[in-house]
Design a protein around this nucleic acid. Structure first.
Lengths: 246, 246
DNA sequence: CATGCTTCGTTTTGTCATACATTATGACAA
DNA sequence: TTGTCATAATGTATGACAAAACGAAGCATG
């Protein structure tokens, strides 16, 4: 329990937060179960109670736990966790196998991104479009694989920000976390030229303010991307596809 | 600054979290600006530093602020806030006018829910379908307006949970927060019969495991819902619509 | 003389230790 | 069965010190 994680933080309470949070996400504590009392955690990790309590506050804020005097601190059901919180995501990534995670992320993208692109076409300002275009150009100019993936991610992030709807932003944030853990989110290499064309199509539709075109271009982009993922990483990346009209 | 909020909590640090968090979301502090030093906040609110620090940890965990020795505690850019966090949502709801908020929420639903329903059709288990059906039945049996809306919300929440993809769950959570603040999320009354039929259509498609039917039934449902909202509350509820095929 | 670098002091957050308040649980007794 | 109370856990307060980073003063150098 509370196995030391690999991340090195400057703050002690971040480390404690990491170890406890990771344990919870890993499922070592079990929903509804109680954590050890604060004092016991202090001894286990050899830190002061201040630190443990601040870690607990952080976890409470993320919806992972719930504390009451006397009864102790209990793990809340996962439906109530802030599953899109960067830390929670990271803890998931440490434990769950990466393919399952990427498949779920891709499911979310498939559901959201076409609609987001449509909204972006309506609400994007000059700066938003410039950012999206910068992503395209970055993909174009990329020599290394890392640079290509980074530009790719920046492109998609910019679309979410361009909706001008803050509820889409946390989804954009997810990409960063994922990026740091693996460079394999996209499946570049063989299909770069086609991918570039399809990205430009999305950009052009958004720049033109054509919501429906942006939606459908994004569907095409994601569909082909899913095909690549299925080919490279396996069938769990198959998505329910809404056949785009032509 | 740090105006007292209306919510009554049992914990002192929750109150401090509320006041500071609310101030930040309200925009009283300004992105990049520094908060007053901890000791000063202690005096302002007449609490111990322990409490203030635990409140700060909570806010840090939600991505609102960032602390460094000597330089102080600064407000992070809103793109990095956990915008789907229940508390952040609540603070937004306190300040922003409710129509803008509901419109953005509806934009998100319009983008996500069709895809979520498609996924639910594939992954839902018996319990999931039972929950969705319970939502339908609840709408059917509802006598009061509150009961109808509550059942409606339960129905839609169940769809997100039925995806079996935890990244969709935070969106379901949003409905709870919104429900507590206003019963007007749906626009019931005149169109109850039609709404009920459309909800059943979604349920049937999911129960039948037909992803495409579930998607299109949801699009129809949301489109009509948006029409009602536009009629009742105004044009800001107009959505980019993906004309469903027939 | 002006400019850049180093050093050091000060401010603010980070951590520790201790004491006490508050509250809900669970056992005991009426 | 119900009410009361001891108890164990979290909640709050206080005071002290550590660490880090910004800024100013001083030093060396052009």
């Amino acid at each position: 329990m509370f196995q030391t994680s690999s991340a090195l933080h400057r703050n002690v309470h971040s480390q404690v937060t990491d170890r406890v949070g990771s344990s919870i996400v890993r499922g070592e504590i079990g929903v509804g179960e109680a954590l050890p009392p604060e004092m016991q955690i202090c001894q286990m990790m050899d830190v002061s109670r201040t630190v443990v309590r601040e870690a607990m506050r952080t976890l409470t804020g993320k919806g992972l736990i719930e504390s009451r005097p006397k009864s102790g601190t209990r793990v809340r059901p996962p439906e109530q966790w802030n599953q899109l919180d960067p830390d929670v995501l990271r803890w998931h990534l440490e434990t769950a196998d990466i393919d399952r995670y990427l498949a779920k992320l891709f499911q979310l993208r498939t559901a959201v991104e076409p609609g987001a692109a449509a909204l972006a076409a309506i609400h994007a300002g000059e700066e938003d479009i410039a950012r999206i275009r910068a992503g395209c150009d970055g993909m174009d100019a990329a020599t290394t694989n890392e640079a290509f993936v980074a530009a790719d991610i920046a492109f998609h992030q910019s679309i979410y920000f361009a909706t001008r709807n803050e509820f889409f932003w946390p989804i954009a944030q997810m990409f960063e976390i994922t990026l740091r853990q693996s460079f394999t989110i996209a499946a570049p290499g063989s299909h770069r030229p086609r991918a570039l064309i399809e990205h430009r199509a999305v950009l052009d539709a958004i720049a033109a303010g054509d919501a429906e075109a942006a939606r459908e271009a994004t569907v095409v982009l994601l569909t082909h991307s899913a095909d690549d993922l299925v080919r490279i990483r396996g069938r769990e990346f198959e998505m329910p596809r809404s056949t785009p009209r032509r």
